[in-house]
Write a protein that binds this DNA or RNA. Structure first.
Lengths: 214, 214
DNA sequence: CATCGTTGTGTACGCTCGTACACATGGGAT
DNA sequence: ATCCCATGTGTACGAGCGTACACAACGATG
């Protein structure tokens, strides 16, 4: 039974693809390299994934534990007493300090999606995931801005080989977050969520909650 | 020494490489495609550029006019009376409105630089170029933050197929810029808010354009 | 038991790629 | 004039690629 039909084959191929991309980038991804990494015959990869895009989408979606996963793992951000900028800057540092394979994978996907429409939904999902996590603490506009800023900071770190400067990240993140009533940057004493900030002339952002299908 | 036949050979190859990358992405760049585009024999491209990385560096450096070029072309940013956030948001819109080849090329470079160390300096240059332009108006920390934020916003626009929201960009850019002596650009809404364009209205934020299916 | 169709495997074809290398060309040095 | 060598060109080779396709294994079905 298990001998013939191997439901783990598919998963193993996907895992191998993630390792291949993590090691050599998307450019190094091919049916053969994945087959070799997964220790399955070439025909097996082409059977389960007719096209490379299909394999890429499956792999990258499974590796969905990017920064959004780090955020979700630390419920700390849900605690309204912690400073959001400080927490985000710390989590960014944590993510960058570990195995950078995940970080590189995420941004490789981001940038590869520029040319491959098939990857766009997956790339968009990640940003939305982070934004959704943040929406518990701020308004949608700020959440989107924070995502954009963090993306830019990550890219700066990855592309310039400069070490991650957590204090700098904390500072600029704090600037984006509209100051609540009272102190600026400190823990928020108010019990209810600081949703809107007055004088905000920006239209409400698109919630974009739909999840694209496979 | 005296050039032999065609001193423009090299330049023509570089131009062809830029067109090739702009059309099909870096993935479509090869000695042969460039040779075909430039209408020169294959050996000519390999002679002038022994390796593909070398050709890429030359091409991308030449195409490095990018956003820094747009900034430089508009001396408007040097005028301290204009609001920096407003000006940047407008220039971003201008860059995105035109031929997007340049924008895509820029971020294509980013992608390639993630995995190819040879391209990293070129990628870093463009960010530094923008930061330097900005340094005439703000401190280095803010300049870096603005670059990061703009990168993130560009990526959001390119990846989600949402139209560029200039009002949103202006708002979040303004938050990053600390309120200075000459200009009031900070998040706090002071009594005199300069350079508020009366004309520009906000486009509807949720077009939810059809997502690219598989 | 015989048959069939789904699932998995091995191999081979045609293509593009980077690279190497022998050859052509013509201006400058002698 | 003769030679030299930087410059330019054509071709060929091996590697890796996506894809196609014939075949093997095995559960379901009659």
């Amino acid at each position: 039974m298990a001998r013939r039909y191997d439901p783990e084959r598919r998963r193993r191929i996907i895992d191998a693809a993630i390792r291949v991309v993590g090691r050599g980038g998307i450019a190094g991804l091919s049916h053969r390299t994945v087959a070799a990494e997964a220790d399955v015959p070439l025909g097996s990869t082409t059977y389960h994934f007719r096209t490379l895009d299909e394999l890429m989408v499956a792999a990258l979606r499974q590796a969905n534990e990017g920064f959004a996963g780090v955020l979700a793992a630390h419920g700390a951000l849900d605690d309204p007493r912690t400073d959001l900028a400080t927490g985000l800057a710390a989590l960014m540092g944590e993510w960058l300090a570990g195995d950078r394979t995940g970080v590189e994978l995420e941004y490789e996907l981001y940038l590869a999606a520029l040319r491959r429409p098939a990857l766009r939904p997956v790339a968009a999902e990640w940003g939305e995931g982070v934004a959704e996590q943040l929406s518990h603490r701020t308004d949608p506009v700020t959440a989107r801005a924070l995502v954009a800023l963090m993306d830019g900071i990550f890219l700066q770190v990855l592309l310039t080989d400069t070490p991650y400067d957590e204090a700098y990240a904390r500072e600029v993140l704090r600037r984006v977050i509209p100051a609540g009533p009272g102190e600026a940057g400190g823990p928020q004493p108010g019990p209810d969520r600081p949703a809107d900030h007055p004088g905000d002339t920006v239209p409400p952002a698109c919630p974009r909650s739909g999840r694209p299908g496979t």
